[in-house]
């Protein structure tokens, strides 16, 4: 791994943390997932094609790690969901109260969506990936990205009461 790779990886840590939290909805599991993703990215640095964008490559590693993690946790007992521990959600001192309340309701609405909708909303609308990149991360056709994403957007707008 060279210095350029490591700096690019560091620059994307916030993105990895966000995606991990969106996938797991649990801060402790999100931390584990980021760590595993970083390890795998470092171990696999040689297989990264510098002509490709870095984000989709990393997100794909993270998603595969998440799938492995979920498989292993099937027997791990009761899990506390982020709904039940709202203090665990990242707080942002920036925007004013109203904006913050809106952000909170977006987070809660997101967290209530099924995993397949949550991850696709996150990749496109939060991480601003193109449909084509998202298709590569999720290993599904672009047409499937579009149909799943539009259903997820409508479900979210329903929850948020957007007319």
């Amino acid at each position: 791994m060279d210095a350029a790779f490591s700096e690019a990886l560091i620059a994307l840590l916030p993105n990895l943390r966000r995606f991990a939290l969106s996938l797991t909805r649990r801060p402790d599991q999100a931390d584990d997932l980021v760590q595993i993703t970083v390890e795998r990215a470092i171990a696999g640095a040689g297989s990264y094609d510098p002509d490709q964008r870095f984000e989709p490559w990393l997100f794909r590693i993270m998603r595969n790690a998440f799938i492995d993690q979920t498989r292993r946790r099937k027997t791990a007992g009761t899990q506390v969901d982020i709904h039940e521990m709202p203090e665990a959600l990242p707080t942002d001192p920036g925007p004013g109260l109203e904006a913050r309340l809106m952000l909170d309701s977006v987070r809660v609405a997101m967290a209530e969506l099924p995993e397949g909708q949550r991850e696709i909303l996150h990749l496109v609308c939060v991480e601003e990936m193109s449909y084509a990149e998202t298709a590569r991360v999720l290993e599904i056709p672009v047409g499937t990205v579009m149909s799943r994403l539009s259903r997820a957007r409508l479900a979210l707008s329903e929850k948020l009461g957007i007319e």
Binding site: I10, R18, A99, L103, L121, H122, C125, L156
Partner: peptide, 26 residues
């Protein structure tokens, strides 16, 4: 509905405070 969901979700893209604890290890 599509524009608004995108705009609101973009708000979740928060700027982090300080350097990530994993940065030094990387």
């Amino acid at each position: 509905r599509f524009e608004e969901t995108r705009r609101l979700l973009a708000g979740l893209r928060l700027a982090p405070e300080g350097e990530d604890p994993l940065a030094a290890m990387i």
